[in-house]
Nucleic acid binder design. Structure first.
Lengths: 170, 170
DNA sequence: GCTAGATCGTCAGTATACTGTCAATCTATA
DNA sequence: TATAGATTGACAGTATACTGACGATCTAGC
């Protein structure tokens, strides 16, 4: 008899795998976000960056990347795009010549206020097919899983630690 | 009194939002996959493509994109990379000059057999922080949600429909 | 048999996402 | 105070991901 009856390879190796479900759901989430927010010409990551800069004015790019769990290398170009749309400005830090501090412009703060209802519609639509109790259960499990897996990917600092030395704007 | 007491904008608008959790979890999932599979130099998408071509030999690129829910435009370069690694070959379809049929090479089939244990380790690690009952609940909710949201993003055909005319290899 | 419309693979363009590297700068220590 | 090591923003390189457009080709309806 065969020593190891290998299971046959089927598409279930893909469809039932957590990795596929996470990729597919991310795809769907971005698609819904872009649909609801197309009037604002902002991507999900740009939105997250605006929220974070609004919450922590004067944050620098490295700490911002930790706060929104976004790769530092890519963040430069994201900030550049926000800057070219005049939603964000960069000022050199007086006490450290390496750092550039990030601030929302007036129109950056304005678009943030305007886009929030659309973002909330998008977030609601992502979970709309589920029953309320299921939505709650899914969000709790995802929050837990993301939290417990937090050290895995390359985010250099945990979000809380990232803000330790940010002066008064914590 | 104010007409509309806007809630203050905090980072919870990001952290508690489904969109953030899906993006972050996708990030973590890819990171774990690459870590477990680094000996094979295959990305998650390339792995899914190999599985699909193995399961449906002679599939064309458009149908493949539907089966693995992957954008048609990008798939060209994915196939190219698989071809340059000699894991996949493309043959012109005799009855339709537009189409190129996809097949695994011997070394493509071999690497698929070899990588599967590593992929299974990766998939297990993604959910490892949860209790078994929670894993099951999360996978059921995610499967349901992806299924019910299936029409949202740009996949041109549902996976089942994509294979209707694929001859005997269904 | 001709042609309007659909489909195929491909390309250009934009935006993530990651690894690795670099010069400029800062900091802690000897 | 000289300097080794760490940090910062920037860049090159690779790989997704999507929109929109294109020529080649196929198919239906006439």
């Amino acid at each position: 008899m065969p020593s190891k009856p290998l299971p046959p390879i089927t598409m279930d190796a893909v469809y039932a795998a957590p990795g596929y479900l996470f990729r597919r759901m991310q795809q769907i989430a971005v698609s819904i976000f872009m649909e609801e927010c197309k009037a604002f010409d902002l991507t999900p990551v740009q939105y997250a960056a605006l929220i974070a800069i609004h919450t922590h004015p004067g944050i620098d790019a490295t700490r911002l990347s930790a706060v929104i769990a976004f790769d530092r290398s890519t963040l430069g170009s994201v900030i550049e795009r926000l800057q070219s749309k005049h939603f964000v400005e960069r000022k050199p830090a007086p006490e450290d010549k390496r750092i550039k501090l990030l601030y929302l412009t007036k129109s950056g703060a304005a678009i943030l206020r305007e886009i929030i209802p659309a973002v909330e519609r998008a977030q609601a639509r992502m979970l709309a097919p589920l029953k309320p109790s299921e939505r709650k259960a899914l969000m709790e499990l995802m929050t837990q899983l993301v939290d417990l897996n937090n050290e895995v990917s390359r985010v250099p600092l945990r979000a809380e630690d990232a803000l330790e030395h940010l002066g008064k704007a914590g």
